[in-house]
């Protein structure tokens, strides 16, 4: 098991052979979290088909440790793939609140980023999912290629590795980030 980061030195380093590894808690927790991101399948529209293709055999996301879970209670990542309408936004916020910490949101496709091609005359389209939930990674495209989605996931993994679990000084990720949430609104 190779963990990134500087080796911890000290008087007991190397005294116990290969069976013992010294590292810090942040690294281990972040490594574990990034290597088993379980997405909640939140496919709404066309991007859902590309998300399915990303889960298929050619672009396989299983090698990243991602197993799609149908329920928010058992998932850590919500990939909002597709257009969010106003009718759906309340349900989206409710599902986001049902996820357990630590949770991350990846906005896939232009519709989820900022309304996409429907930004102008879409009276029923939410102009960007970051109006209701805080977003960590935005993946542009209409629809983004499965490789683009995987790149977005890799970026998220990088961000997770930079997270500081025990010695957090400022909110860094996910629901604790300073991203704007539409406050008074969506009950």
């Amino acid at each position: 098991m190779i963990l990134p980061g500087p080796p911890v030195t000290g008087p007991i380093q190397g005294k116990f052979g290969d069976g013992l590894i010294f590292t810090n808690v942040d690294l281990v927790l972040n490594w574990a979290r990034k290597s088993s991101l379980w997405p909640m399948t939140f496919g709404l529209a066309c991007c859902a088909i590309e998300m399915m293709a990303a889960g298929g055999t050619r672009f396989d996301w299983d090698r990243f440790g991602m197993i799609p879970r149908g329920t928010p209670r058992q998932s850590d990542l919500m990939i909002v793939a597709g257009t969010v309408t106003l009718k759906m936004a309340t349900r989206l916020k409710r599902l986001y609140e049902q996820m357990a910490e630590p949770k991350y949101v990846l906005s896939m496709g232009s519709c989820a980023n900022n309304g996409g091609p429907y930004w102008r005359h879409g009276y029923h389209v939410l102009k960007g999912v970051d109006e209701v939930v805080p977003v960590d990674v935005y993946v542009p495209g209409c629809p983004p290629r499965p490789e683009a989605l995987l790149y977005g996931v890799m970026k998220l993994q990088e961000m997770i590795m930079e997270d500081r679990v025990l010695r957090r000084r400022q909110p860094s990720l996910g629901s604790l980030a300073g991203a704007q949430m539409a406050p008074e609104a969506v009950k």
Binding site: L86, A89, T90, N114, G115, W119, R120, H121, G122, Y123, L126, K127, G128, E131, V132, A182, P183, E184, A185, V186, K187
Partner: peptide, 8 residues
């Protein structure tokens, strides 16, 4: 319901 409708 608190969500912006007009194009942003």
């Amino acid at each position: 319901n608190g969500m912006r409708v007009k194009p942003t």
